[in-house]
Design a protein around this nucleic acid. Structure first.
Lengths: 154, 154
DNA sequence: TTTTAATTTGCAGCTATTGCTAGCTAACAA
DNA sequence: TTGTTAGCTAGCAATAGCTGCAAATTAAAA
């Protein structure tokens, strides 16, 4: 997503108010690679602005997503994640610690439809599931004999 | 997933009871390509077995998924879908009617990790979003001038 | 300033799912 | 056939993660 000051301009141009709540969220999100949930942003924001409402967080995140400034990532477990990286990329989810990491794909998936076609595809989302480096290592240390299932590695 | 009679044997072998509720679900799921939700299965099951509990549907679906007899599909909107096709395939979601279709991919996605690796990947899920044949056609009939966004088609 | 329309807040309500448990029953043994 | 019991079901409460609504607040145009 754009920088807080650029976003401020975008909001002004659209005759949207530049409230302190929004400005705070702009800066919390800008280049935040941790794929936070609304809840976790709420906790962080609350420290800097006690009394800010979770409802406002959801509201603003929704607006930013609708404006294309922010990507919504749903990995199937837990809450929706918000990703300021709106470039073409995908996600790796650690099934142990639930952390999400950005992933670049070299070969874009091509598909052939079983029923002969007729689908207009807007977007393709790829989710890799497994164990991240840290969790994989933790398990090996605890029980060196038991190997994690590992159909593919990188 | 396996046929109802094969599943019955699996359950017997595991000393799990073969209740009428389970048998009904086996047959409702077997070769059901519509990716039903727990709720929709509940509605269908209720007609054949009034009084069956939604709780039991969730319970049994969870067990079957855990046994690897059926795939859990979460496309980010609405409830979890259940897919008896446990072969290697992916999904297309129509953003208009929310129907899900199985998709075979020719080129398995390869990835390069931004941070240099260390991820052990267990599974890769690809979700294609767009408009299915039928919905695409409906829209064109209603407003022939407005084209659906169509970054890729098949 | 004043005005006005956008925004925030708090809370109720919703969907999808899981936790709990009393009572029931399939399956096996006798 | 009957008894025993582990395993199952039903039903309801509870939960997470949101979204809808209306009143109070406030940024910013006039």
């Amino acid at each position: 997503m754009r920088s807080p000051s650029e976003l401020a301009q975008v909001f002004r141009d659209k005759h949207l108010k530049l409230t302190p709540q929004r400005q705070l969220l702009f800066s919390l999100l800008h280049q935040n690679p941790s794929h936070p949930t609304a809840e976790s942003l709420y906790e962080i924001a609350s420290k800097q602005m006690p009394g800010i409402s979770l409802r406002t967080i959801y509201q603003t995140l929704g607006e930013l997503a609708e404006m294309g400034e922010l990507q919504l990532v749903d990995v199937g477990i837990g809450a929706t994640r918000f990703d300021p990286n709106i470039g073409d990329h995908h996600h790796f989810v650690c099934e142990s610690c639930r952390a999400i990491h950005d992933v670049d794909i070299l070969t874009a998936p091509k598909m052939s439809l079983r029923n002969g076609g007729g689908f207009a595809v807007d977007e393709v989302g790829v989710i890799f599931r497994g164990r991240c480096n840290r969790c994989n290592h933790k398990q090996q240390v605890r029980s060196p004999g038991s190997q994690a299932k590992n159909k593919a590695s990188n």
